[in-house]
Amino acid sequence: MSEDTLKIKAFSVKDIVFDTKYRFTNGHLAIPETISTSLPANFESITIRIVKPHHLDVQTNTIMDICPISTKVLGKVGDGITHTLTGAYFLITGADTTGIQLHDFGASNGLLKDKISLGKAGTPNEDDYMIFFDVLLKPNFSFDRQLVTTIFTLADQYLQPIRNILKMINGRYADETHEYSNESHPGKPKVVVVKEVAGQGAMYDNLLFPDEPSGMANGVSIIDMNNFPVLLTPNEYRDGAIRAMV
C-alpha cells in the first residue's frame, strides 16, 4: 500500500449494553457503567449513559463534544488502516451539582431532542446510538484549560479499551471500506482550505495529531503552538488528526 493511501474500515454497531467488561462481537457492543480510575478531587461523579435511537426524550447537560470511536490499526494518522465504529457516537456533557453548565458560549442543556440537530456532519443520525459521558463537578470549580483537559482525557481513557478491541478485529469483516488518497491534479488550479479554529485564553482548545484518530493522548494543543498555522494533508484531516474540545 502506498504511503499516500488511507483505508477507513467501518464496523456497524447494532446495539449497546452495559457489562462489567468491554466487548464487541458481531455488532454488539458492551461497555462498563463506570470509569476504571478514581475521580479527581473536584469531581462529584461521572455517569455513563446509553441513549438508544429514537429515545431522545431525556434531559442532558450541555454537550461539549461529539466524537467518533476510531483506532489506528496500521500506519500513522493519515495513512494505513483505521477502524471506526458507525451507528454509535460518544458525547461528552457536563455541569456542576448546582446546575452550572460547562460551556463556552451558550449551553445546550435541556431535552435532548430539542438540543441536537441530528444528521449533520458533526452529529449522529437518527438511527444511531449515543454514549453519554456526563461529568458532574463539585460547586465553585474553576473552568480552565486544566479542567477541560482532565475531563477530555478521562473520557478518552474510557474509550481506549473499545479502540483496543477494534484494533484486533479482522478488517475483512468490516461493513464498509473507504479508500482515500491525496490526489494531485497537475495543471488544475491549486486550492487550499483554511480552517480557523478556537485556540484562545484558558477555555477552548483544539488538539492536533493525537496517537489515535479523534483521540486525546499525545495530541499537540493549538494554544501551545501559539495558534500558528499547520498544514494537514487531506488524508490526515480525514483520519481524525484534529480533536475539538469545549
Partner: peptide
C-alpha cells in the same frame, strides 16, 4: 468534514491540503 469531502473529490482543482490556524 464537508469541505474536505467536496474539495477532495473535485478533479477540476488540485487540492493541496488543509491549513489549520488558531485565534490568538
Amino acid at each position: 468534514d464537508p469541505l474536505v469531502a467536496v474539495f477532495g473529490d473535485d478533479p477540476d482543482i488540485d487540492f493541496q491540503g488543509v491549513i489549520v490556524v488558531g485565534t490568538p
